[in-house]
Write a protein that binds this DNA or RNA. Structure first.
Lengths: 66, 66
DNA sequence: GATGAATAAAAATTCAAA
DNA sequence: TTTGAATTTTTATTCATC
């Protein structure tokens, strides 16, 4: 369950605008994943997502930005 | 004043571990820049810094991570 | 081990004001 | 136009429960 959710998160984030954990939560719910903010906070950390000027983004290997 | 502070921020962040705006605030103060969290929040946005699993990082041109 | 509810902590914003 | 104090919003964590 968690793995599927992680994939969905990666997809949504990669896709573009996820400005907050709550927005992510709403989008996930539409996809059938009903979780709370606490869980997303943990997921985001596990996935090493980064929150920048334009919402959440996926981090590559080293963390260096180009 | 703001430009100097921005440079100092870039330096501190580029340097390594800045885990929170408050930590940044303390480090800046040691360097002679005494500002509040509100100002740092604005600075960070202006500098397009990103907060990830290992504190704040500088974002490069495209925002892509390697 | 994964999660939620409640809470704490951190960050963004509002609202003066210089 | 930049800032700080206060506030709101968002995110991380704690403390149970399953």
């Amino acid at each position: 369950m968690k793995d599927q959710r992680h994939n969905a998160i990666r997809e949504l984030v990669g896709q573009g605008l996820v400005a907050s954990q709550d927005e992510l939560r709403r989008k996930l719910r539409r996809r059938g994943f009903a979780v709370t903010q606490a869980t997303l906070s943990r997921d985001i950390h596990e996935l090493k997502l980064s929150k920048g000027p334009s919402g959440y983004t996926l981090m590559g290997g080293s963390g260096a930005t180009v």
